[in-house]
Structure formats: structure tokens, C-alpha cells
Simulated scan of single mutants.
Amino acid sequence: MQLLDGKLVSESILAEIAEEVSARKKAGKKTPHLAAILVGGDPASQTYVASKVKTCEQIGFASTLVRLEADTSEDELLNQIRFFNTNDDIDGILVQLPLPKHISEEKVINTINPEKDVDGFHPISLGRMVLGQPTFISATPNGIMMMLAHYNIDTAGKNCVVIGRSNIVGTPMSILLSRNTNPGNCTVTLAHSKTKNLKELCLQADIIVAAIGRPNYVTADMVKEGAIIVDVGINRIDDASKKSGFRLVGDVDFANVAEKCSYITPVPGGVGKMTICALMKNTLLAVKDR
């Protein structure tokens, strides 16, 4: 079993981005500028945004973080996005999800200028991705593809099961893996919580991408020997032995599944690191395209 080490891979790619940003600055070109909006005080969201801002600093990006209270109105948030849309110094915009229930995520995503949609969530971005046109690819699926490429994993002709059908991860992941690319050329089954024969499908899979948001959902009896496991999940479960009172686990029962795999991503330290890495690549692409 070999770990797909997102920390190691992302450090390598981020170093390349930092070199390119340094060269841009020396040439008098614009510094990439990422604007992030955080609504409310969800601890996990605060951690994610802080990590993104810190990464910007490390690789030489400019960043702006706007913190809004949990009771911020939808109109106020949309107006903040519109301000960033028209600000020529801002190259990429991200709004940290999830949002408070009184705010429509669909409206928020649709309001972001597609030319600054570095999360790759806008319908135009997703549509272009489906058609294979140049666009911002959703950060998590893009990060997974970058990881598979880094480890030179041969995916052509492999059976793949993607568990989870969200527009952010599962659906774009299934499309990217089925495309005539490298990595890619998989035969993909997009499964979800209502799939009746999930265990049987998984046992036939050479690659499993777990993105269903349920802790330890994929168990050892669902995985065949030598499978490749990509765990997108990051879930908090109670753990009295930890100072925080919880620990992070993925959607895969790592302790029991790992011994059957050829490759597997850890949680944390796997896909999450690659998501941030892909976000930075999209932001660099945004400033170059402009």
C-alpha cells in the first residue's frame, strides 16, 4: 500500500507556482489576487479559509478576506460579490461553503463573475468543463486529477466508482475520469446514497472515489484487493482522548481498508491539500487569462 500524499504533492506544485509568481513580479506583471468571503463562524470553514489565505501568502499571492456575520443578509453578500466582480485588482473570488440557511448557495454561485470563478462552481464553468473547453475546473476534482498524474497512476480502461453526486465533487469527478485524457479513460459509475447494489459495484471497482460525506462509509468488505482509494470526505467524530474532543476521519474506514489497497489518500493530508493547490492554480490561470 502506498499513500497518495497530498501534502507532498501540493508542496511540489505550490513551489512551481511560487517560482512563476516571482518571475511575474520581476517582469512587472500583475500579482495574482484572491478574494475570499467567509459568512458566519463555523469552525471548519474558518480553518479552511485561514489555510487558503496562508497559502496565498506563502506563494506570493495577494489576498483579501472579508468576514461577514452569520445573520448577514443575502443581498449584502451578493453586493460584496458584485464589488469584487468589478474590482480589476481581484483575479479570483471564492465564497466559503456551506452558507447560513437563509442564503441561497445557487444565487451566490451564479453571481460570481465566471472569469473570476476560481472554485469552478459557476454553471458556465461546469458547462465548459463538460464540453472539454478551457475553464476553471472545480478545485477538488482538479486536485485529485493532479494527484493521480503526479503518481503516474494508470487509469485507462479501469472501472471507477464515484460515491456522491454533488455538483462540486462527485459529478465533475465522474466526467473528468471518463474523458479521453491522462489521467482519465475510466469506465465510471456515479453512485450515491440511494444506489441499491453499492457494495457489489465497489467490489468490481479498480478505483473508488468516496465523496458522500459520511464517516467511515466505505468499509473493507466493499473494496477489492489492489484497489485505488481516493477519500474526499472530512468528518468530525467525537474522541474524548483528543484535547479538541474530536478527530477528523474520511468517508473511508482507513485503518481496515488501507491494507487491501495499492494506493490510498489519508485524511487529513490527502485530497484537502490538493483542493487548495488546485484553487491556487486556478487563480494563477485567472490573472494570466486577463
Results as ranks from 00 to 15, higher is better:
94 L>T: 04
76 E>G: 14
58 Q>T: 13
90 I>T: 02
102 H>N: 02
89 D>M: 00
70 A>Y: 11
91 D>A: 12
94 L>W: 10
101 K>N: 15
88 D>L: 12
88 D>N: 11
61 F>T: 14
88 D>T: 09
67 R>Y: 02
86 T>V: 01
95 V>C: 08
89 D>G: 06
65 L>S: 05
101 K>L: 09
82 R>W: 03
98 P>K: 09
59 I>A: 07
78 L>K: 14
77 L>P: 07
83 F>P: 04
86 T>E: 01
90 I>K: 03
65 L>W: 07
61 F>D: 04
80 Q>C: 12
100 P>A: 05
77 L>W: 10
85 N>Q: 10
63 S>G: 10
88 D>P: 03
88 D>Y: 10
81 I>E: 01
100 P>I: 10
78 L>I: 08
102 H>M: 02
66 V>L: 15
61 F>H: 13
82 R>F: 07
62 A>C: 13
76 E>M: 08
62 A>H: 05
78 L>E: 00
92 G>L: 00
101 K>E: 11
75 D>L: 13
62 A>V: 04
70 A>P: 08
85 N>S: 15
94 L>F: 06
76 E>W: 00
83 F>E: 10
93 I>T: 06
74 E>W: 14
100 P>F: 13
98 P>W: 08
64 T>G: 02
91 D>G: 09
70 A>M: 00
73 S>Y: 15
68 L>S: 13
70 A>H: 12
80 Q>A: 01
97 L>F: 10
74 E>N: 14
81 I>V: 13
89 D>E: 09
100 P>L: 06
66 V>S: 10
58 Q>W: 13
90 I>M: 11
64 T>P: 04
91 D>Y: 00
76 E>Q: 07
77 L>N: 01
88 D>Q: 06
88 D>S: 01
97 L>M: 08
60 G>L: 08
89 D>K: 04
66 V>G: 00
65 L>D: 03
68 L>C: 11
78 L>T: 08
90 I>E: 01
92 G>E: 06
75 D>K: 03
101 K>R: 11
96 Q>E: 08
94 L>A: 02
99 L>I: 01
101 K>P: 05
90 I>D: 06
100 P>S: 15
61 F>R: 06
79 N>E: 08
92 G>D: 03
62 A>Q: 06
85 N>R: 03
99 L>K: 14
71 D>F: 12
73 S>A: 13
84 F>S: 01
77 L>F: 04
94 L>H: 02
60 G>I: 00
77 L>G: 04
61 F>I: 14
102 H>F: 07
67 R>S: 05
65 L>A: 11
65 L>M: 07
87 N>T: 09
62 A>I: 04
90 I>Y: 02
82 R>H: 12
96 Q>T: 15
66 V>T: 15
93 I>C: 02
91 D>N: 14
97 L>K: 04
62 A>R: 01
67 R>T: 15
82 R>I: 09
77 L>K: 09
77 L>Q: 10
77 L>H: 02
